[in-house]
């Protein structure tokens, strides 16, 4: 009504395109990230990519100082995330070791401990304190924990003989029987 400027130019098309691409791109980015956050940890049925776990010295698997998930094809893998600063982890440490001792002779089940954001001297002290003999190594670069999108420690992932995740335990196990019952589901 009071506009008197002679030219009334709209927004040039290319600027409009840039704006919309930027806006939609931003929203898509945030949306995808939100989706990732909402997902939580990997779920049974999700594909589990291969990863490499370097072992703490003193642990060896068939003479090698690092293991791959694919090394254990045909075996059931119990993947436990822990840290020496994590109090709840201590509650389940002895139970995990006991379960490992139970299945070790059969050779059908492998226990892997992944040490999340920890320092080596403390981690060793922790392993020694609970006399843990199953394979343990540091989560170098927090790559494995990101792969599983863990939300904290302790968390334990059960991967069956075909390499498929079939059970996720958040928080510490309450008993050896709990661990055994989850493993025995897949052992015939």
């Amino acid at each position: 009504m009071i506009e008197t400027t002679p030219q009334k130019r709209g927004v040039p098309l290319w600027v409009q395109i840039v704006i919309w691409v930027f806006l939609v791109g931003l929203l898509a980015l945030v949306g995808v990230i939100l989706g990732k956050r909402q997902q939580g940890t990997v779920q049974p049925g999700d594909a589990i990519p291969d990863f490499t776990l370097p072992l703490f010295s003193g642990y060896e698997y068939e003479g090698k100082s690092e293991v791959k998930l694919s090394d254990f094809e045909g075996k059931l893998v119990v993947l436990n995330f822990w840290a020496s600063w994590c109090k709840p982890c201590e509650q389940e440490a002895a139970e995990l070791e006991e379960a490992w001792k139970f299945y070790e002779p059969g050779g059908e089940v492998i226990f892997l401990g992944v040490d999340y954001v920890d320092t080596e001297p403390e981690a060793r002290a922790y392993l020694k304190k609970f006399g843990i003999t199953f394979f343990n190594g540091p989560d170098m670069g927090t790559k494995i924990s990101q792969l599983f999108r863990i939300r904290g420690v302790p968390e334990t992932y059960f991967i069956d003989q075909n390499g498929a995740l079939y059970y996720v335990k958040i928080g510490p196990f309450l008993s050896v029987d709990e661990i055994k019952s989850i493993i025995d589901q897949k052992l015939q």
Binding site: A83, S84, W85, V117, D118, T119, E120, P121, E122
Partner: peptide, 10 residues
């Protein structure tokens, strides 16, 4: 946190 205290000791 405890984790950070360990890092400092490291």
């Amino acid at each position: 946190t405890e984790a950070c205290r360990q890092w400092r000791e490291l």
